[in-house]
Amino acid sequence: MKVRILTVGNKMPSWIQSGFNEYHKRIQPMLSTEVIELAAAKRAKNPSDANLAQYRETEGQTILAAHNDTGREQLWVLDVKGKMLSTEGLADKLSEAMIQGDDIALVIGGADGVSPDLLSKADMKWSLSALTMPHPLVRVVLMEQLYRAMSINNNHPYHRGN
């Protein structure tokens, strides 16, 4: 199985890149992961609500174009209104995808959220937290949680649980 993280934006601060790289390196023996950075929509100086909807739509189309819509790559979209999972629940979801022989495209949308069209095509809508986090930080949290979930699935001592 392979996980492709489709993320809007690039040029991350060095501390974000360092944290992400640490968990990305650790997870490779257990789960092949790749990051695909996608361009954010061009922003107006003082955007209106209509502009924000257009940004979500443009970025949603870019994300869908990057998704391997072959039926073998599940589309998991991070969304504040998505289902919350425990780390053990995430480990179970990853195991299920592995058993089915599916890959996963995991989406981190842009700063203004994701389009309704993208959400309608998602196989899973997942919320990392009820907290609002900056999108760069989501990369680090996401990669750490993937690593922790795969540690559970591989009986690695990283996750000590309760």
Rank of each mutant, 00 (worst) to 15 (best):
residue 61 Q to R: 15
residue 135 H to R: 06
residue 58 T to G: 02
residue 67 H to S: 04
residue 21 N to S: 15
residue 107 V to E: 02
residue 100 Q to P: 00
residue 51 N to A: 13
residue 101 G to A: 09
residue 143 M to L: 13
residue 46 N to Y: 12
residue 62 T to L: 12
residue 48 S to P: 03
residue 21 N to M: 10
residue 42 K to Y: 03
residue 159 H to S: 05
residue 121 K to D: 06
residue 91 A to C: 08
residue 111 A to K: 11
residue 28 Q to Y: 04
residue 143 M to E: 08
residue 41 A to V: 12
residue 142 L to D: 11
residue 159 H to K: 03
residue 44 A to V: 05
residue 113 G to N: 01
residue 35 V to C: 12
residue 95 S to R: 13
residue 109 G to N: 06
residue 58 T to H: 12
residue 113 G to H: 05
residue 105 A to N: 09
residue 135 H to Q: 12
residue 109 G to L: 11
residue 81 K to E: 07
residue 5 I to D: 04
residue 84 M to N: 14
residue 85 L to I: 02
residue 18 S to M: 08
residue 25 K to H: 08
residue 102 D to Y: 14
residue 72 R to F: 11
residue 89 G to A: 11
residue 132 T to N: 04
residue 49 D to Y: 02
residue 97 A to L: 00
residue 65 A to E: 07
residue 91 A to V: 05
residue 76 W to C: 10
residue 126 W to H: 01
residue 73 E to A: 13
residue 101 G to H: 05
residue 147 Y to P: 07
residue 131 L to C: 01
residue 27 I to H: 14
residue 64 L to V: 06
residue 159 H to W: 05
residue 36 I to V: 15
residue 148 R to T: 08
residue 38 L to A: 07
residue 103 D to C: 13
residue 64 L to R: 10
residue 31 L to E: 06
residue 153 N to M: 01
residue 47 P to N: 11
residue 150 M to R: 13
residue 60 G to V: 10
residue 150 M to D: 05
residue 152 I to D: 02
residue 12 M to W: 14
residue 79 D to V: 01
residue 152 I to C: 01
residue 158 Y to G: 03
residue 75 L to S: 03
residue 157 P to V: 11
residue 3 V to H: 09
residue 66 A to T: 04
residue 43 R to K: 15
residue 99 I to A: 13
residue 78 L to D: 07
residue 106 L to F: 13
residue 39 A to L: 09
residue 143 M to W: 11
residue 105 A to L: 07
residue 57 E to L: 14
residue 128 L to D: 06
residue 76 W to Q: 01
residue 39 A to H: 09
residue 145 Q to W: 05
